[in-house]
Design a protein around this nucleic acid. Sequence first.
DNA 1: GGAAAACTTGCTCACATGAGCAGAGCTGCA
DNA 2: TGCAGCTCTGCTCATGTGAGCAAGTTTTCC
Lengths: 316, 316
Amino acid sequence: MIDTDELLSIRAAELYYEENKTQDEIGAVLRLTRWKVGRLLAQAKASGFIRIEIVHPRARRLIVERRLREHTGLSDAVVVSAAGVSTDEELQSRAAQAAADYLTALRPVPATLGISWGRTLHEVAQGLKPGWARGVNVVQINGGVSLNRRTGTAAATAVTIAQKGMGSATLLPSPAILERVETKLAIESDRAVATVLDLGSAASAYLFSAGQADENSALVDSGYLTVAQVAELVRKGAVGDIVGRYINADGHIVDLELDERTIGIRLEQLRRAPTAIAVIAGSTKHAVARAIVSSGLCTVLVTDEDTALAVLGEAP
Amino acid sequence: MIDTDELLSIRAAELYYEENKTQDEIGAVLRLTRWKVGRLLAQAKASGFIRIEIVHPRARRLIVERRLREHTGLSDAVVVSAAGVSTDEELQSRAAQAAADYLTALRPVPATLGISWGRTLHEVAQGLKPGWARGVNVVQINGGVSLNRRTGTAAATAVTIAQKGMGSATLLPSPAILERVETKLAIESDRAVATVLDLGSAASAYLFSAGQADENSALVDSGYLTVAQVAELVRKGAVGDIVGRYINADGHIVDLELDERTIGIRLEQLRRAPTAIAVIAGSTKHAVARAIVSSGLCTVLVTDEDTALAVLGEAP
DNA sequence: GGAAAACTTGCTCACATGAGCAGAGCTGCA
DNA sequence: TGCAGCTCTGCTCATGTGAGCAAGTTTTCC
C-alpha cells in the first residue's frame, strides 16, 4: 500500500513541476504549510520520483562522469547522454563529437598528438572546428588501411585533424599487420617508418578508439584478418582491439605471435602516457571499453551513458 | 549547425540539474554573469531540452488534463502518467485507481451513483477505500453479466462500491442484450426492472467505462455477442461500446435493431447528466474514448496519457 | 507507566532566483 | 551619416526556497 505522505509528495510535485506553482500556493491547495510542501518535494526527489533529463544530442551525464573518475583510474571522463537514441551509430557520432569538443578544450594544447584511425576517429576529425588549435603535429600511431577500397581514410583523418588545427600530419607509411614477423621487423627498422614510430612514442597526447572482436571489426573489413582468425582470437579471450592489437578482458595481448606482426605503438607506451584519450561508444564495445579502462590503457574516456555504466559494472 | 548559446545552455543545465550548482557558480565555471546563466537556463527550458518527469504509478499529467478541459467539452479530466508502463493492463489499473481517487474527492458526494460493469469498474471498486462516502445508493445502469462463469462480477462491483461507501446497492435484474425485441420490452416493463431503470435515470452522477469493438470485448466474453457479430458492427463503423451500446466515431448508435434489444440507460440520458465520469484507458480504446468525448457522452474523463493525446488528436 | 529517543512541525534567517528596468550595442533604412 | 527600433547586458529589488533550530509529538523500551 502507498503511504499518504508519498501520495502527497506526488501531488505536490505535479503542481510544482507541471503547473509551476510556488510551494506556498501548493500549501494552500493541499492544506499544508509551505515548509511541509518543501519537505515533501525534497522527499519526492530523494525517492527518485522526480526525473530530470536533459534531452539534447550534445548533453553530457556529469554524474556518471564523476562516478567514473572516482571509481576507476581515469583522470577524466566524458559521458554523452543516450536519451532518445536507438542506434549504436548515433551513440558513436555523439561520442565522437564530444571527443572533438574535449580535444578543443584540452590544456595544454598537445604539441604532438598521436592518433589511431577508424570510423570513430574519422568522425572526431569531422567534428573538429577549423582553428581548434594553433599548430599541432598529428602523428599516426598504428599502421593504416591500405588493402581495400577505403584506402586513404586513415591518412585523411590525420590530415583533417592537422589542417583544422593549423598544423602538420605525419603519416605512418606501413600496413597494420604483416604476414611474416621478418617483414614487420624489416619495415620497422626502415628509417622512414622508424622516425614516425619514434615521433609517435614521444607524443604529448594520444587519441584513439577501439574495435570490438567480431566479424564487423575494422581489421577484418580492411582485409588484415579473416572472420575465422577473429573467431579464433575470441576463443582465446579477445574482447576487442586497440591500436590494432587484440586484448582480453584483463587488457593483455591475446595472441603474442600476431602481435609481433603488428606495427604501431606498444601498449606499455600507451599505459605510460600522461594523456591517452579513448573514444569508445556503442553497445558492442562495452567489453573492450571495460578492459581498456580497468587495465589503465587510457587516462581519459569519452563514451556514452550505457557503456559508462558497463565500465562501472552496473546494469543499464 | 548548433548555436553557441544553445550549447552553453546545455552545459549550464548539466551543472544546474545534475551537479546542483548555483547559477553563480555556473557563471564562474563558464565565465558568464549569473544573470546570463539564468537566461540560458530559461532558454533551455523553453526549448524543451529540460524534461522533468514524475515517475510514480499515481502520478498525473496536469498539463494534459488542462489541455483536455480547454480543447474539449469536458468539465474535468484526470490523466495518469504512462511513464515506464508497457502493458495496457497496467494503464487500466492506474486509471481505475485514479477514478477511485476522483470519486472519493468528488463534491457534492452523489446521493445516487449510476454505474456500469466490467473489468475496469471492478478495479475502481477495489481501489476505493472503505468509508470513501458516508451513504451512497449505487444503481446499475445497464444489464449485467449472467451467461457465463463470471456471473456475479457485475453485482459484486456494485455491492463493493456501495459497501465501501456505507450505502446500498440496487442491482438491475436483467441480461444486457435480449434476443428478441419483444422480450426486451417485456422485461423492461416489469416493475422490478422498471423501478431500477427509473432510479438509474435519476442518478446524481454516473461512472462507467467503455469497451473496444473487437473479439476481446466484454460482451463477446460474456456470450451476448459472437465474434462475427462484432466484426459486422465494426464493418458498420463501430469503435466500441458504452453501457452495452455500440457507437461509431460520431457517438451515434451503430445498429438500431441491436440497440432496441439492449437493456439499460439511453445515451441521451447520459448526455444530459451533469456528472458522467468515463474511465477509459489503454491503447485499444483510443477510438472509443475519442468518440465518447467528442460526442459529449461524458463530462469527466479518467484516462492515461496516450489515450488523452489521442482524444486531443495529437501524436503520442 | 514513564523516561528516553526519534521523529515531526513551525519557525527564523540567509541565500538563490526571477521580474523588471535602464543603458549599451547593434541593425536597418533613408 | 544619422536616427529609430531592436536585442542584449548588467543591474536592483522582491520573492521563493533550503538550512538550521527549538518546541511539540509520537514511538520505543525498560
